[in-house]
Design a protein around this nucleic acid. Sequence first.
DNA 1: AATTGTATTTAGAATCATTCTAAGTATTGA
DNA 2: TCAATACTTAGAATGATTCTAAATACAATT
Lengths: 152, 152
Amino acid sequence: MKEEQSSTQENNDLARKLAHSGMRMTSQREHVYRTLLNQTDHPTADDVYLRAKADMPEISIATVYNTLDALVKCGLIKQVNVERTATRYCSNMKEHCHFFCGECGNIHDVDYKKGRDELPVKIPRNLIPTQVDISIRGHCINPLSCPNRSKN
Amino acid sequence: MKEEQSSTQENNDLARKLAHSGMRMTSQREHVYRTLLNQTDHPTADDVYLRAKADMPEISIATVYNTLDALVKCGLIKQVNVERTATRYCSNMKEHCHFFCGECGNIHDVDYKKGRDELPVKIPRNLIPTQVDISIRGHCINPLSCPNRSKN
DNA sequence: AATTGTATTTAGAATCATTCTAAGTATTGA
DNA sequence: TCAATACTTAGAATGATTCTAAATACAATT
Ligand SMILES: [Mn+2]
Ligand SMILES: [Mn+2]
Ligand SMILES: [Zn+2]
Ligand SMILES: [Zn+2]
């Protein structure tokens, strides 16, 4: 029932934000969104497609791409580009940054420090920043979280 | 002659670093490297190809891609991925980060503050970072540096 | 309810950046 | 000079994403 409750809460969120951007609430959009919320990882469009298809076999990859775009525009998910392979998607909307493990390919969320507000960069006055992304690459040291931890 | 001097200096650098990675110094590699050093912007592989072709009409796009890879491996240039369009290349090897203007598409180098060494993130102990990238997006306010500054 | 206009979904084609392949050319070092 | 290896090249192949055009669903009028 906690499930059910959060479910309707998130649906309201979705419906409201879609409407705000002049879009309709559809079963596909709801299902793709729900698929993303169920994952703490950072799936590619194709990952989302495969997962979504399990419960909605008729859904198309085009719709998944369209929906992911829509969700990004609505501010319900974020795109993550650590590698220059397929774009990955993040449904954690708390401010955070990303750690990419070059060995297992996993992306981990990394929180900001409490006190932080000052960025360590000096942006010239003629450049107006709207968004700052910090991405970290490295590797996991835990064989459980990192399958490919044999080599090294 | 200042030109010539720095020219040979950079060639030595190139030859030495290529050799260190077991690669030969070739006219194409020298030319591509020189093309990159001449630019303060962040060209795509195709940009580099077009510029390089002006002085070396026989060069192929495949060689440009191969050379850019080689230069990255040698630590002479860096790849920059702000957008998920074509990879761009940076020949400024001083530690810095990137500002991407969503209006003109230009990428500007942004320096770190002097005192900085502390990153504003708390990386879990099971993740070992090897590289941190900060990328900023926003827009230029100078119509000279930003051609598309009419709209807004 | 039937009609109309618009949004959405879909499969497949098209595009773009990049990598791969296979053949030709250059360089090195016995 | 010869053979081994590295390099360059054009074009084919790939992978991710976007585009296109037709079918379907939906909402607002009649
Ligand atoms: Mn995330
Ligand atoms: Mn740069
Ligand atoms: Zn890992
Ligand atoms: Zn600009």
